[in-house]
């Protein structure tokens, strides 16, 4: 090969040189056009794990269970005070970890726990370190409790019980799955309902109807590569049955369609869920409607 290159005419070598320059510049422009996210599609999965982590610290009620955690972390759970009555995430921040290849979530929580002398309040700062594996799965590597701050009474603004965290664990996992992040299947018990439950999607005048698996495939023509970001979540008990709930999610989506044209969406999903006797969640159906994205101040202006 080298010999052949050496015997090429100088002019031909010039073309090859220009070609190489072009290839390098294409790479640069490609990166400009499709912004590469620092933490692609893994954010929802990490947040889902955080929600599950905190949910299991709260007292068991009914049959609300969270995704299994590795044995090594069960000791970490013991470091929290017992009998936690209330837990609220005050702040969370994703930062680049000083440890190579790890993603770090800094979280501050407020907890209220019951003691014989009365309830006490604590603020706890902690770090969660996640490892993004080559197959795209996110694994919790380490949790570091960074010390307990002074006891301080806080006002309860909302009831953050197990259901509060379970609905968020489910929602963030579902979003991660829609982002193409298959390792969360078990968390949402996906295999049991993806082929059997109905998923209706309305995108303007387009209507997609079918099973969850089928509608996701058809939907991916319009929302091909991108990321869902949860904007609001609400869960209400269905009037018809004690074990049935409606999860109302509003999310933004940014990405590209199948033809690599950029797409922006604001999506509302109403997910009807039945809680099985064993505590797993079964999705009965999903209704999705694409709303007008929040882009301009005049889009809702009437005259």
């Amino acid at each position: 090969m080298l010999t052949r290159l050496l015997i090429m005419k100088t002019s031909t070598l010039k073309y090859v040189f220009i070609l190489l320059i072009s290839l390098v510049s294409i790479e640069v422009f490609s990166e400009n056009r499709i912004p590469v996210k620092e933490h692609p599609s893994s954010l929802n999965s990490m947040v889902a794990q955080l929600m599950g982590w905190y949910g299991r610290l709260l007292p068991a009620e009914r049959n609300i269970f969270f995704n299994q955690i590795d044995k090594e972390f069960k000791d970490s759970l013991k470091q929290y005070p017992h009998d936690i009555e209330h837990l609220k995430i005050i702040s969370s921040q994703l930062v680049n970890s000083s440890k190579k290849g790890l993603l770090q979530f800094n979280v501050t929580i407020n907890i209220k726990s019951k003691k014989p002398a009365g309830s006490i309040w604590m603020t706890i700062k902690e770090q969660f370190l996640f490892n993004e594996k080559k197959d795209g799965s996110i694994v919790l590597e380490k949790i570091i409790l960074k010390g307990k701050l002074t006891e301080e009474e806080r006002e309860l603004s909302e009831n953050t019980n197990r259901m509060y965290f379970k609905s968020r664990e489910f929602a963030y996992s579902w979003l991660a799955y829609m982002d193409g992040f298959g390792s969360v299947k078990k968390t949402i018990n996906l295999e049991s309902w993806i082929e059997s439950s109905v998923y209706n999607v309305q995108i303007g005048s387009k209507q997609i109807n079918g099973s969850v698996a089928s509608s996701l495939r058809q939907r991916s023509v319009y929302l091909h590569t991108g990321q869902h970001t949860l904007r609001s979540i609400d869960i209400t008990q269905d009037d018809e049955s004690q074990n049935t709930y409606v999860l109302d999610l509003t999310m933004d989506w940014k990405g590209f369609n199948v033809k690599t044209v950029p797409v922006i969406a604001k999506i509302n999903q109403k997910i009807k869920i039945k809680i099985n006797n064993d505590g797993t969640w079964y999705v009965l159906f999903i209704e999705e409607k694409h709303l007008i994205p929040d882009l301009t101040p005049w889009q809702n202006l009437l005259c």
Binding site: I203, G204, S205, K206, Y222, V263, A265, I267, I292
Partner: peptide, 8 residues
């Protein structure tokens, strides 16, 4: 960008 869900 395409504004998904607007029009048809």
């Amino acid at each position: 960008p395409i504004l998904s869900g607007v029009g048809g």
